[in-house]
Design a protein around this nucleic acid. Structure first.
Length: 283
DNA sequence: AATCCCTACAACCGCGGGTTT
DNA sequence: AAAACCCGCGGTTGTAGGGAT
């Protein structure tokens, strides 16, 4: 179901994302935002192309994504919108909070298209046949994992993290990162709060593990909130006084939460922060 | 138990459009 | 005006998972 990790000519990794890569990406984007997808992997310490990072974040890592089975209402909406809009998956996804265009596209091709085509070709005959209208869907292990995570979250929801006024940081944008150029990047961070959680499953043949990055990751931030959420600009002094436009971030607390970052790896601070974390935090 | 085959979906690729230089 | 850059979209592919035989 997933692609075997490999490298392209330029040394950039391709294929399945590892938990370590996901942690790095989540850590970086939640902290610094996606100020420039093309540059981001370099600062985040990821050997990935920007496109790959963007795709991973937008489709799987960002909060407020729904995963798992589609409701009947959602499926009806997809079918209806597809009739109206055709293959404009992003437009369709815009009407379905928490669903991504990629996910909808996949669901259409694997399930709805057949059902829809079958229906339209057989007319009302199949309308009486529930089994053809709603074929038994295989419940995959991933869906089971997701549901388990979701249940755990509902039972033990994380308490809201602290957000201080210091997060209003537009004024700290650096000269080389003018605020006026941030519109497209900022729009990449969703502020949609309708969804439930963010959960990611892995299938990695190399180490043969299935693990989740779920709310625990965001809780990790929260657990560290004493310094993390309340001091989002701890490196600003360094930044302001440095000739380097993208100084290295202090990983003192970070590594405690994300030990995958070894001493050689760097997470670099871009030129500013965005104050859009609220969307990530309103679980 | 082993193998085959189909399904689901994560991820890649190419392209077009918008913005910046 | 045009080249360069970046982002987002839609089509497509590769393969793990799981049912069927």
């Amino acid at each position: 179901m997933v692609r075997t990790p490999s490298c392209d000519k330029s040394g950039l990794r391709k294929g399945t994302w590892t938990p370590e890569e996901d942690r790095k990406l989540i850590a970086y984007v939640t902290r610094y935002g996606c100020w420039n997808w093309r540059q981001l992997p370099r600062f985040a310490g990821l050997a990935r192309c920007g496109k790959s990072c963007r795709l991973r974040w937008m489709n799987y890592l960002r909060p407020n994504l729904k995963r798992g089975n589609y409701t009947k209402e959602e499926e009806e909406t997809i079918v209806r919108l597809h009739e109206e809009l055709g293959n404009r998956w992003s437009a369709i996804a815009a009407q379905l909070p928490g669903r991504t265009d990629n996910e909808i596209k996949n669901h259409w091709h694997t399930t709805l298209k057949k059902r829809f085509n079958h229906k339209s070709s057989t007319g009302t005959k199949d309308a009486k046949n529930n089994s053809s209208d709603h074929p038994i869907k295989r419940v995959t292990s991933k869906e089971k994992e997701f549901e388990t995570n979701l249940k755990n979250l509902l039972i033990n929801p994380p308490s809201p993290p602290l957000i201080l006024e210091s997060s209003l940081s537009a004024s700290l944008l650096s000269p080389q990162q003018p605020a006026s150029s941030d519109q497209s990047q900022n729009s990449s961070i969703t502020t949609d709060n309708t969804a439930v959680s963010s959960s990611v499953s892995y299938n990695n043949n190399n180490n043969n593990h299935n693990s989740d990055i779920d709310m625990a990751l965001f809780e990790a931030y929260e657990a560290n909130s004493g310094s993390f959420w309340t001091e989002p600009f701890f490196s600003d002094d360094l930044f302001m006084s440095s000739d380097i436009s993208v100084p290295m971030m202090d990983l003192t607390n970070f590594e405690a939460q994300f030990p995958v970052l070894d001493g050689d790896e760097e997470i670099l601070c871009p030129s500013g922060f965005y104050d859009e974390f609220e969307g990530l935090l309103n679980f």
